[in-house]
Design a protein around this nucleic acid. Structure first.
Lengths: 234, 234
DNA sequence: ACAAAAGTGTTGCAGGTACACCCATGC
DNA sequence: GCATGGGTGTACCTGCAACACTTTTGT
């Protein structure tokens, strides 16, 4: 039995995939992820997810929030949820480190101050990624896409008040394909996910009917469309 | 800065919520979970999920498989997936231990040999549970219910060949409510999840038309019904 | 008036539920 | 024959997609 052999230390880190839909220079808004550039080896110059060592007196969620607040001064997270654990013994050089990943969402107009080595990158054009951070982003993106269709998670990406066309831009960017604004409105309204505020926006530079403004009914994550099939009897 | 203070050791354990639909004494089949009774303090007499310490040279999935095989002699797992991590610093007494939980599924007729301290318990009537293992089961059950409706995950609970009425019993037990056998057949057939074998079962003791036999088309986990709404354009 | 943007109405389809009805077997 | 369990057909309902059409604004 070698069960009781001394545990060569196993560290535990948390890593956050933080998304925001961001407008870059004139192009369409892009789903972007927060990354920082490594200044030292290993993998100097590659880009990393924010995060770090778990302290012995905090749980994972507390740790993510702390690290994002400390290192990136990011506090407007409207959604944070656990994703997969990456546990390959050789996923990083040096002492063994298990990584718990998180999905974080920041609403659209907020633009927190960032340290100089930190930047938002469109997920469609990622820079060279450190270690296994690339697959982590892929995983988080897939989860986001899935949840946009059966939960109200959009509230964490959209502005507090918005025209339907603005919301469409957010969904387009996050999903990676175009949704029909008409149907988006109806689907979300039918489910009670969005509510009209009663007010309207001013019409744009080139005319057009002024848009009614909406907001998400609830500012908390909720599953709105639980069963695709095999529903419980009514 | 106390960042570099020596890391008071943090252990990492894996815990498996293993489900099987089991027929107990004459009642309807019940969704059951595999538990072992603690013979020593802490929490002596309470029931625990199978699992244990992660070794420094294995990843989480390998660890779960090893521990289930070693301690419980359980090798017929047809499905195994990662669930949530439980990381409260005080979730167990003694040195801090982070728990990664897994969902495991065993098909219906298989009845592996079990050590004497280990037993299947219906999830509807759980015994006193150790630590935070109760919520872990709740979490796993919720995940199972959700995935039964939009994936082919039933293959990991059902017999290799079965009549639709048998499959209905499995789904009833796992979901916790009655599904209509007619519609279950149609939903799964339309999606190509089940295929008729061509053979039929013998009719029961009290007569009745003999049932056609089916099997799951694929013996691998697959999402069959990804989007509830906001589908990508065809 | 005309273009642009927003909003409404309508049609069609896909998938699911409920339930009545028909079929094959044991007794 | 009849009871029992299995299978099929059908009618209905809900929710979503697609797209034409109407409304309201700026110029």
């Amino acid at each position: 039995m070698i069960e009781n052999m001394p545990d060569t230390s196993t560290a535990h880190e948390v890593l956050a995939v933080v998304f925001q839909v961001r407008q870059l220079s004139s192009r369409n808004p892009q789903l972007s992820v927060l990354l920082w550039e490594r200044a030292m080896d290993p993998q100097r110059g590659a880009w990393s997810l924010p995060g770090g060592r778990l302290r012995h007196d905090e749980d994972l969620t507390t740790s993510v929030r702390r690290q994002l607040a400390e290192k990136v001064d990011l506090r407007e997270l409207l959604h944070l949820e656990q994703l997969a654990v990456f546990s390959d013994p050789h996923r990083v050089p040096g002492p063994r480190t298990i990584a718990s990943t998180f999905l974080g969402l920041v609403p659209s107009p907020a633009t927190p101050e960032l340290p100089p080595d930190t930047r938002w990158h469109p997920v469609a054009e990622l820079p060279p990624m450190a270690f296994d951070h690339g697959p982590m982003i892929t995983n988080a993106h897939a989860r986001l896409i899935a949840k946009l269709s059966y939960t109200n998670i959009g509230f964490a990406l959209a502005p507090r008040e918005f025209a339907v066309s603005t919301l469409k831009d957010v969904y387009d960017a996050a999903l990676g394909y175009q949704v029909d604004a008409t149907n988006l409105q109806r689907v979300l309204a039918r489910r009670g996910v969005i509510t009209p505020t009663g007010t309207t926006a001013k019409s744009g530079r080139s005319g057009g009917r002024p848009a009614a403004l909406f907001r998400f009914t609830e500012a908390r994550y909720r599953v709105t469309d639980e069963f695709a099939a095999l529903r419980p009897p009514t």
